[in-house]
Design a protein around this nucleic acid. Structure first.
Lengths: 100, 100
DNA sequence: TCATTTAAGTTTATAAAACAAACAAGTTTA
DNA sequence: TAAACTTGTTTGTTTTATAAACTTAAATGA
């Protein structure tokens, strides 16, 4: 009846990160920081969780002399994101009575 | 860009409760218990939270000799449920690149 | 009858998660 | 060279989620 939701994608910041990464090849820490409006600390933690689950890959390099972290979706992450929204539909469709 | 998600509706059990209530006039504790597969304790807590937020109303009566609690959506709850899914769309549409 | 079990929830104790403040390691600038 | 800035990470505290234990009352049965 209800498809299980992806535990990692229940968090708004992580969902935002994933959503942003769906649209771009790669995104760096500061881009994600601005878009998500999260604190640095929180963003760092959520990126780490997504990485540990294998939903994104994280590479550390430099932008000029400053360190720079960029992130990209993995195939697994893309699949999970799509599946999560498929699952969410089951909560909507059941409730909204469309049966669709 | 991203519409804010409803904090209460990020939890799977609470989302299930709301979804179920969207489809029926009223639902009792045991019905919700079976459908959600939550433990009694957890279900009790989540019902209370939804009640405190004014998303559902809870009435206690009897079924035969046994106490029976039933729940129904409030208008506020219905609106919040719909708004939450509207917000979720913004995470999908941005990411999936449809722009729709 | 009176001890057990079952029903229907609630309370509480613990584990996990979210979050921001403080910290670290290096860079730029005055 | 010292103060301020960049780019993150670690840590400590507050919330949240969850199941175990508890409560109250009704049914069952020896």
């Amino acid at each position: 009846m209800f498809k299980p939701l992806d535990a990692l994608l229940q968090n708004q910041i992580r969902l935002q990160i994933m959503s942003l990464l769906m649209g771009v090849e790669t995104a760096d820490f500061n881009f994600l920081l601005e878009e998500t409006q999260a604190s640095r600390g929180n963003l760092s933690v959520q990126i780490t969780k997504l990485k540990e689950e294998g939903y994104i890959k994280v590479e550390k390099g430099y932008k000029g002399n400053y360190p720079s972290t960029h992130c990209a979706l993995t195939r697994k992450g893309r699949t999970a994101f799509i599946a999560h929204f498929e699952a969410l539909k089951s909560y909507w469709e059941d409730g909204s009575g469309t049966g669709a």
